[in-house]
């Protein structure tokens, strides 16, 4: 099993949080903690890059909801990018694909580089 790893990158246009590994009941708390520690605002949107997320089950998506609540409270936009197919399926079943803005195939690495 791959452990969960998170990488935070501050760019000129906001915060990119890259989530890699496996997100389930046992690791969701870890992501929640990272997410709620981020400073967001109307001009500091959050991008969750899930491109290297190998696994995510329904308890794992709790962390996305916490991220959304945290962003909403700060009046920040939140976007999920590079959502893998299986994660997309979970978002679809739970109806969360309507709640989050999804951007397929964005290369956040380049965007981050361009912004700095």
């Amino acid at each position: 099993m791959n452990p969960l790893t998170t990488t935070v990158q501050e760019t000129g246009t906001g915060t990119v949080l890259r989530v890699a590994g496996e997100l389930d009941y046992s690791t969701a708390a870890e992501l929640r903690q990272v997410v709620t520690g981020l400073t967001l605002g109307p001009d500091r949107p959050l991008v969750l890059d899930l491109g290297r997320l190998d696994f995510c089950d329904s308890s794992g998506i709790t962390a996305f909801i916490v991220a959304r609540n945290h962003a909403t409270a700060a009046q920040a936009r939140i976007t999920l990018v590079n959502v893998p197919g299986p994660v997309l399926r979970v978002l679809h079943v739970t109806g969360l694909d309507q709640v989050f803005t999804l951007e397929p195939g964005t290369d956040t690495r380049n965007r981050g580089a361009a912004g700095s």
Partner: peptide, 25 residues
Amino acid sequence: GGHPPALVLREDGRADYLPTPGGLL
């Protein structure tokens, strides 16, 4: 509401999901 779709097992041997897309948590 955000729940996996129910399965319907038919007398004729089919098994199909009863889709409920868009229902939220």
